[in-house]
Structure formats: structure tokens, C-alpha cells
């Protein structure tokens, strides 16, 4: 039990609006172990970024955690006040976001940003923090560290900026890194460099990673396990190889079938009819039932849930949908 870094139980994130309460994340439970990369995949609005933000304590008001708990290495971290959260964010949880330009301050040299972050979290002296910043830049694969440490963010390419952001996330040797679409803004050849870096850091430092992305290919080659999200709910959870090869949830298999293949020729891509429901119009029962070819009466009545590996689908859980 002791190597579980992140433990989410029955998490629910709500947004009260004038028209009523929207549920962006609905009753999800999952764990990430030391040195493990959990990929969280889903389409826009599936609630994957919201889950990341809830862990980081960065939900935009009026968004709030309405139910459930989040534990980091045994310590409960949801519902903490700002001061307590600040002691965790950056120190025990690192964050990497999609756009490295917005994560870095354009007015400060990258070295100074690293030194400031290191000193804030570790209390090292300026010169020792600078030495540590150089080590980190080296570790994330920045060439010619001595020359680049005093450059400004705009003098770096997108891929190099994302490496700096990862170095920033590593400053305090966090137990967990939440990476939200870290490769989406990057070109494919650079994307592969960044995922390889994440994998190496995870292996060498034992950091747990929550990798949020819409790209199944990135998940397949980076993550150990995958959580598929649909309409704020967990649709399927399990080892990445099994889910890529034999998806059990009709949504996951539809998603996989809609991705053009690099090997097989098909005239028509598989399509999932319709689109994901808006948060104010989630159908009763299984949220996927109006688009599902296997849906039966039970799917329209009761919501299937999972809190361990498997598919949240009555067909997969019970073998029938009557």
C-alpha cells in the first residue's frame, strides 16, 4: 500500500451556474503508484483537465470539489486552504501544462526562474541553487547549459521551453507530476523527445505521473496504465497494452477505430455517431448510451461505475443490458 502516491476516491467536481449545477467530474476513483505513468485520455470536455486541476487545487471558482477525497502519499490534500496548498503545489506535486510560453515568465531569464523556484522550495543558497538549476537543465536535455541559463524564454524553441517547464516541475523533487497535454503544442519529432524524457525521469526518480492527453498514440507509448474519460466519468481503466489491443468499453473501441491507421487501409473510418453530450445534457444511466450500438434498457436506467480495472459498461460488467 505504501507505494501509492496518488489516491483519488469518488471525486466529484461541480460548477454551480445560473442554470443549475454542472458536474464536470463525476465519481471517479483511481490510484497512481511510485514510478508509474497513468495516462488519462478523452475528448474535449471529458473532464480530464478538471481532474488534474482538482489535484493541483487550481479549480477556477465557482468550480469546487463537491465530494470524494484526494490523498497524496497518505496525506489528504483536497479541501486544504491556500497556504497549505502552496506548501504542496510545486514542492510535492509538479505541474506541466500544454503551452510552455504561458508557464514561463517572459521577463525573467530561465536560470533566475529556476533559481527562485529552487530556493523557495529548498532554501538553498543562491549559488548552490544555481548549480542545481544547471544540473536540472542538463538532466532535461538542454544543450550548452552554461550559455542558455541566462537566456530569456523567447530565445528558446517550443520543445526547449517545455524542457525548462519540466525542469521547473522537478525543482523540489515532487512525488507526483501532473502533465496536462505536455506535448500537444509540439511537433511530432519534438513530442517524442518530451515523452522519452518523461519516461526516463519517471524511471530514474520514481516520480508518479498523471499524463493528461487527447492523443491515444502518446498514451500507448508513454503510459503504464490508462484511464479513459467520457462526459466526466471514468469509462475504462486498465493496463495500456490491454486497452489498446482489446478495449472493453464500446466508447474506447469506437475511439480506437476512429483513429486512421499507419498500417491498415480502410475506405471508411469507424465513426461514433453524434457527439459527447454537453455537461447540462448528460443522459440518465450510462452517459454513452445514446451513441452506443449495444445499449439496452438497463443502460438508460442505471449508471455503470468502476473503481478498479475494467470497463464501466453493463455489457462488460454483467454480460447483459436488459
Amino acid at each position: 500500500m505504501s507505494d501509492i502516491v496518488l489516491d483519488i476516491r469518488n471525486l466529484r467536481v461541480e460548477f454551480p451556474t445560473r442554470k443549475g449545477v454542472l458536474t464536470a467530474v463525476d465519481d471517479i476513483s483511481l490510484q497512481i503508484r511510485r514510478g508509474e505513468i497513468l495516462g488519462m485520455v478523452g475528448e474535449s470536455g471529458a473532464g480530464k483537465s478538471m481532474t488534474g486541476m482538482a489535484i493541483l487545487g487550481l479549480l477556477e471558482p465557482p468550480g469546487r470539489i463537491a465530494a470524494g477525497s484526494i490523498h497524496l502519499s497518505g496525506d489528504r490534500i483536497d479541501g486544504l486552504d491556500d497556504r497549505a496548498l502552496q506548501a504542496i503545489r510545486g514542492r510535492r506535486i509538479g505541474a506541466v501544462f500544454q503551452d510552455p510560453l504561458t508557464s514561463l515568465n517572459p521577463l525573467f531569464r530561465v536560470g533566475d526562474q529556476l533559481v527562485e523556484t529552487i530556493r523557495l522550495h529548498t532554501g538553498l543558497s543562491r549559488s548552490r541553487a544555481r548549480a542545481r538549476a544547471k544540473d536540472l537543465m542538463h538532466e532535461v536535455g538542454i544543450p550548452a547549459v552554461e550559455e542558455r541559463i541566462d537566456s530569456y524564454p523567447h530565445q528558446f524553441s517550443g520543445g526547449m521551453r517545455q524542457r525548462i517547464v519540466i525542469a521547473l516541475a522537478l525543482c523540489a523533487e515532487p512525488e507526483l507530476i501532473v502533465a496536462d497535454e505536455p506535448t500537444t503544442a509540439l511537433d511530432v519529432s519534438i513530442q517524442a523527445q518530451i515523452t522519452a524524457l518523461l519516461r526516463r525521469l519517471c524511471r530514474e526518480r520514481g516520480t508518479a505521473v498523471l499524463l493528461v492527453t487527447h492523443d491515444m498514440g502518446v498514451i500507448a507509448e508513454t503510459a503504464d496504465r490508462v484511464a479513459v474519460m467520457y462526459a466526466g466519468r471514468l469509462a475504462e481503466l486498465g493496463p495500456v497494452d490491454e486497452i489498446v489491443r482489446r478495449p472493453n468499453h464500446p466508447y474506447t473501441s469506437g475511439l480506437m477505430g476512429s483513429i486512421p491507421s499507419l498500417r491498415k487501409d480502410v475506405d471508411e473510418l469507424q465513426m461514433i455517431p453524434g457527439s459527447m453530450p454537453r455537461l447540462d445534457a448528460i443522459p440518465p444511466g450510462c452517459a454513452f448510451n445514446p451513441r452506443c450500438t449495444h445499449a439496452g434498457p438497463r443502460c438508460r436506467r442505471e449508471t455503470p461505475r468502476i473503481d478498479s480495472p475494467g470497463a464501466a459498461c453493463w455489457l462488460a460488467l454483467e454480460g447483459e443490458v436488459a
Binding site: 507509448e221 491507421s261 499507419l262
Partner: peptide
Amino acid sequence: RLLLDTIPDLEAPDRNRIPMGGEV
């Protein structure tokens, strides 16, 4: 060839894929 070797392949995922070095 490097581009084809770099892109993730869902049908044959390779975790030890060696990324193309350098940048455009």
C-alpha cells in the same frame, strides 16, 4: 524515415522508441 520511426504507432507501440534528435 525518422518521422515515420518517431510517430507513435497504436498497432505496435514501442516504449523504447529512440526520438529524433535536434530541432527544425
